[in-house]
Nucleic acid binder design. Structure first.
Lengths: 108, 108
DNA sequence: TTGACATACATCGTCACTCGATGTATAATT
DNA sequence: AATTATACATCGAGTGACGATGTATGTCAA
């Protein structure tokens, strides 16, 4: 039930920002949570997520800090900035418009 | 209220197939109808639509024939093939899965 | 009548992104 | 000892949207 990858485009950023608005997370965790929450309709890979996280950080929407987990592995935790919160709200709004437009075209 | 172009990716094909399932249309008409129906949330351009139509025709999902309109302009009308109908149904279904996955992530 | 605008087709180069492959490293499991 | 899971990261190939550009004709107002 995997979704066409082309549809994914443009959704990674709003989804990441929304998740980080809830709590700080690290990359590998985001991949697992997204894939699980969508029952693998989304199948994110490292090659997709990490460049995206770096992009968001470069844009000042998220910040990172290293921590050592209980299992001894270093994790880079990301948190949302003020700018990121505003961007998140805008992108969620944008999704609503987009989804409504598509529904109009496909089911009207 | 224009939508991020990245979100558009993967939506052009299902939308075109759906429109052509309703009636035969020509390229310029599709652009106008889509932009109007979405209140310009979608802002399709020639550079987006025509290559997409050629792709769909090469894949055997749509067929074309020239007609001369009342205003004297030649128009290339597109119709949906049997294969295109099946693909259309599959892609609409895929959209539903995708939209639900995104809603789960953004509003849960 | 002439210039602007709409209609209608089309292509091309640039830019950006996804994905699979690959790499490094450690801990846990078998 | 080998495999799997965790966790970071990069790179190249392929894809596709978009703006710009081109061609051609019809309409309409200044």
């Amino acid at each position: 039930m995997a979704v066409n990858s082309d549809m994914m485009r443009g959704m990674a950023e709003p989804v990441i920002l929304k998740l980080l608005n809830h709590k700080k997370m690290y990359g590998y965790e985001i991949i697992k949570v997204v894939n699980e929450k969508t029952n693998n309709a989304f199948q994110w890979k490292e090659g997709t997520l990490y460049p995206c996280l770096h992009r968001l950080e470069a844009d000042g929407l998220i910040e990172s800090e290293w921590e050592i987990a209980d299992n001894g592995k270093p994790r880079k935790y990301y948190t949302l900035t003020k700018k990121g919160q505003a961007e998140m709200a805008a992108k969620v709004e944008e999704w609503s418009h987009f989804a409504q437009a598509v529904n109009t075209l496909l089911f009207a």
